[in-house]
Each structure stands twice: as C-alpha cells, then as structure tokens.
Design a binder for these strands. Structure first.
Length: 129
DNA sequence: TTGTTGACCTCTT
DNA sequence: CAAGAGGCCAACA
C-alpha cells in the first residue's frame, strides 16, 4: 500500500459552520469562555497566550462564529487593544455587545470600555501558563 | 483555481 | 508624535 499522497488535503480547520475541530480556533473559544464575568480581554492577549500574537486577526475571525457556537462564547468580552467594541456590529444588533457589557457591570462610552486596563483579563496571568 | 477581505497587532518611516 | 505598511490564517467571490 503506497503512501497516501494527497495534493489537496482537506484541513479540518473549519469554522462554526462545521463545529469544533481546528486547534487554534478551539483554543480561542476555550480561553474566551474562561473570561470571568465583569472582565474583558483583547484579541492580541488571547493570540499571545496561544503563542502567536501575530494571528490576532484569526482570533477576531474565530469570534465571527463564536456567537453561534455551543456553549455560547462571550465574544462580547473580547475587544481590540484599544478597548473599542470593534465587533459590536456582528452581534446581530450594533448595540447587542454594548448591552451585554453593561449587564456585566462594564461601562461603555462611545463604543469604548471604561477603565479597560482595570477590567482587562490576561489569560497568561490568570491561567498562569 | 487565484485574489481579496477581515471583530487585529506590531514595527518602521 | 503621526501615518503607513507588513504579517498571520481562514473564508468568500
């Protein structure tokens, strides 16, 4: 039996459309679920925790389907480095993310999290890698 | 199939 | 100090 040579290998890395599979994405979801209530983190922090801070974009892309994932991922607790709700428009309604954050006792003004640094939750610190 | 876009971050000019 | 470009991986046209 000859070696299996497949020029077009199908990567299991599929998004929410498929389900859990990809490593990087799954890790992102896992970390996002570990975010305590009332805390927030950034894409770069999660990416850095995973070891690839350069792939911060992928974290955001993973969040694109995190809302449809199960268990639901608190994507509203994940924002960019500036603490701005960059992905608020992807929650179905442009105010959904802000409302969710307000329920978390997090103040949001002008789509920016107040005291973001204080509420910042660093996985590398809390999870103590 | 290739090319472009995207909830980003960091470095360089 | 401010603006621009680069780089990562995956999905969509």
């Amino acid at each position: 039996m000859p070696p299996k040579k497949k020029p077009t290998e199908k990567p299991k890395a599929v998004l929410p459309s498929g389900r859990k599979d990809s490593s990087f994405f799954e890790q992102v979801y896992d970390v996002a679920r570990l975010i305590p209530r009332g805390r927030v983190t950034s894409y770069g922090a999660i990416a850095a925790y995973l070891g690839t801070k350069m792939s911060a974009r992928m974290v955001g892309w993973a969040m694109n389907g995190a809302v449809h994932l199960k268990p639901p991922v608190p994507a509203h607790r994940v924002v960019n480095r500036n603490g701005m709700l960059s992905g608020k428009m992807h929650f179905g309604t442009p105010t959904r993310m802000e409302e969710l954050l307000k329920k978390e006792k997090i103040k949001v003004v002008d789509d920016i999290i107040v005291d973001f640094e204080k509420k910042f939750w660093d996985p590398a610190e809390e999870l103590a890698i």
